[in-house]
Design a protein around this nucleic acid. Structure first.
Lengths: 168, 168
DNA sequence: TCAAACTTTCAAAAGTTTTTGAAAGTTTGT
DNA sequence: ACAAACTTTCAAAAACTTTTGAAAGTTTGA
C-alpha cells in the first residue's frame, strides 16, 4: 500500500471510530491528520487537506484544544497559527478518558446517588426492583470510576504491565 | 424523593448516558424501563409508559434483543409477547463491551494491521511519523483488546478484585 | 377458511447535528 | 490611523438520525 493511500485510510478509520464514540467525525479526522503529520499545520492547510470550510476547521481546532489533544504553535516572524497533535498514544487515551469521565460518568454517578435515597415500601415489588437495580448500577459505576481515576494517574508501562500480570 | 419521580429520573439519566455513548436514546430508555420493572412488559405497555409509537417500540425492542440486553417471554395462553431485561449489572456491562468490541474495535484493529504494511522511505519524515503513529496506536488497541477479552471471560468478583489488587 | 390479535415494515415527517461561508472582529506593522 | 493578515462568529443550509403511523404481514383458534 502506498503512503498516500495509507494516510487516507487512517484518517477515515479514525473518523469512523470517533463518530461511533460520540466524537464528531471531523474532529476525529483533523486529529488523525495532525497525528500523522511530522510538522505543525495551519488552518488553511487543514481545510485544504480535508476539504472542509474555514468555520468548521476553526471550531474543530478549538474543540480539540479543549480536549487537550492538540496545541497551538507560534512561529517567530509569522502571523499564522500552527497546530500540532500530542503524539504519545497513552497520553491521548488518558486525555480522552478524563474528558469523558468528567462530562458523562460524573453526572450519572451524582444522579445515581440521589436515587439511592428514594424511600418506599420494602414489600412493594416495584420499589424493590428499582432499589436493587439502582444500587447495583451504582456499585458498578463507582468501580469504573475508581479504576479510571487510577488509570489517569498511572504511567503507561506501569499500567499495562500490571494489567498483564493479572491477565496472563 | 418519590418512587415515581425516581423512576423518571433514572430513565432520563440512562437515556442521556446512552445517547452520549452512541446508543440511541429510546433504546436506552426502554432498557432502563425494563431494568426497573419487576415484571415483563408488553409492547403496548412500553409504548404507553414512554409515549413512543408502535413502530419505534418494535424496532427498539428488536435492537435490544440483538444486543443481548433483553429477552422475550411467552406467557401460556397469551398471544402477546412480554419483554424483560437481564438484571445482572455485570452481565450487562459484559454484553455491551462485547457488542461494541465486535462492531467497533475489531474493524479498527484490522485496518491498523493493514496500515503497518505500508512501505516507504525511512528517511522521509512523512513516512516515519505515519509509521510511528500507526504502530503506537496499534499497540494500544491490542492492549485494550486483550483486556476486554479477559473481562468478557471474567467473573465480576474476580475481575474487580484483580483490578483493585493492582490499584491499591 | 376466516377474522381477531398481534407484529413488522417503511416512506414520509420531525428532530438533531454538522457544515458552510460571508461578515465581523482582532492583531500587527508601518 | 490604516490596511493587510489572520481568526472568530453565527444564521442558514445540508446532512444525518430518529420517530411516526398506517398498511401489510403473520399467527392462532374456532
Amino acid at each position: 500500500m502506498e503512503l498516500a493511500e495509507g494516510k487516507q485510510k487512517f484518517i477515515e478509520a479514525w473518523g469512523k471510530l470517533g463518530s461511533e464514540w460520540g466524537i464528531n467525525r471531523t474532529m476525529a479526522q483533523v486529529h488523525a491528520l495532525l497525528l500523522i503529520s511530522p510538522v505543525a499545520m495551519t488552518t488553511e492547510e487543514i481545510m485544504e487537506a480535508l476539504s472542509i470550510s474555514r468555520g468548521n476547521a476553526n471550531m474543530t481546532l478549538r474543540d480539540l484544544i479543549g480536549w487537550g489533544l492538540i496545541e497551538k504553535q507560534h512561529k517567530a516572524g509569522e502571523r499564522k497559527e500552527y497546530f500540532y497533535a500530542e503524539k504519545d498514544t497513552w497520553a491521548i487515551a488518558r486525555q480522552v478518558a478524563q474528558e469523558r469521565k468528567k462530562r458523562e460518568l460524573d453526572p450519572v454517578i451524582k444522579i445515581l446517588n440521589e436515587l439511592t435515597s428514594v424511600k418506599g415500601d420494602e414489600k412493594d415489588p416495584e420499589y424493590k426492583t428499582f432499589k436493587t437495580s439502582v444500587t447495583n448500577i451504582n456499585k458498578l459505576a463507582k468501580n469504573v470510576n475508581k479504576t479510571l481515576d487510577t488509570m489517569l494517574k498511572a504511567e503507561e508501562n506501569w499500567f499495562w504491565s500490571s494489567i498483564f500480570k493479572i491477565f496472563k
